Amino acid sequence: MKYKTILFDLDGTVTDPKVGITKSVRYALEKNNMEVHSLEALEKFIGPPLKDSFMKYYDVDEATAMHLINDYREYFTDKGIFENKLYDGMIDLLKALKDKDYTVAIATSKPTVFARRIIGHFGLVNYFDEVIGSNLDGTRINKAEVITSVMEQLNITNTNQTIMIGDREYDIRGAHENKIDSIGVAYGYGTIDELRQSNPTIIVYSIRELYDQLIVG
């Protein structure tokens, strides 16, 4: 395989964060007397930067969105962060990548401090060479900026040997902006249409397929 560096999105790609994220969003909305129909209706918050989602789906200005994020973190920091689970087969994939000496990193829009806590919680620290996300002050939330930061930290200069893996259009667009290949994973929270329209190098439908692409292929 031509790749030497594998970048993973976190939410919807390595872990399934549905319960924790949707409950945290519900907490923030209800605290501010905003309507919540169901947790399922809040799944659209999984993946994109929270500020963008609050502004888009609840038609609030940036200041209000930042206030909602602070309320979101009241629940997420100690509870929601651990209402999360690894996708079946992910440990085997990461172990195989480690055994083959790939450089592996997390590139997420989630704040770095939370991403690192999650990686530690699941005992994955030794599988990743770097874990980078956004900043708590709301900067570096764009996925392209996150990917750029990871590549700089890892001193990656050969973009032809680097690939980004994620479940949302933001991951694929971030890869395009950094001129690297990408894999869209359809087992996460992006729709097939969303992934196809963002034009990844390839789409896979399961971690088994992802394993075959990265390890067998």
Rank of each mutant, 00 (worst) to 15 (best):
L50M: 06
N32M: 07
K2F: 03
K44Q: 10
D167W: 03
K179V: 13
T148A: 13
V19I: 15
D61W: 00
N33R: 01
L10E: 09
L50S: 00
E62W: 04
R117M: 11
S149I: 09
G89N: 13
F82C: 05
I132A: 12
I132F: 14
V104S: 11
Y72C: 01
K95V: 12
Y187Q: 03
S24D: 04
D78F: 14
A186E: 12
N160T: 10
I6R: 12
E40Q: 13
L7H: 08
A115R: 07
L210S: 05
F54M: 09
A65K: 04
A96S: 10
I91Y: 10
R117F: 04
A65Q: 03
I156Q: 04
H176C: 11
P17Y: 05
D193I: 15
K31C: 07
M66D: 00
E169M: 14
I91W: 06
Y211G: 05
D181F: 08
R116F: 04
N33A: 05
G166T: 06
T64Y: 00
L7K: 11
T201C: 02
N135F: 14
N70E: 13
M90S: 09
K44E: 05
Y57K: 02
I172P: 02
K2I: 10
N84V: 07
I46K: 00
T64E: 09
D11H: 08
A96M: 08
Y187C: 04
E43Y: 12
M34N: 03
D99T: 13
Y189F: 15
I106L: 01
V204H: 02
V204P: 03
S134T: 04
N155M: 09
E194T: 09
T103N: 07
K179W: 09
D59F: 11
N84S: 11
I156Y: 05
F114D: 01
V131Y: 13
I119M: 06
M151D: 01
E177W: 03
T112M: 10
P111F: 02
D193H: 12
Y102R: 06
T77F: 08
N135Q: 15
E209K: 06
E40I: 14
D78Y: 14
D9C: 02
K23C: 14
M164Y: 14
D99Y: 11
N155D: 13
G188F: 02
S109G: 07
L94V: 06
M55R: 07
D129T: 11
G166A: 03
A63Q: 14
F82M: 10
Y27Q: 08
G174L: 00
T148Y: 03
P111T: 07
E152Y: 08
Q161N: 14
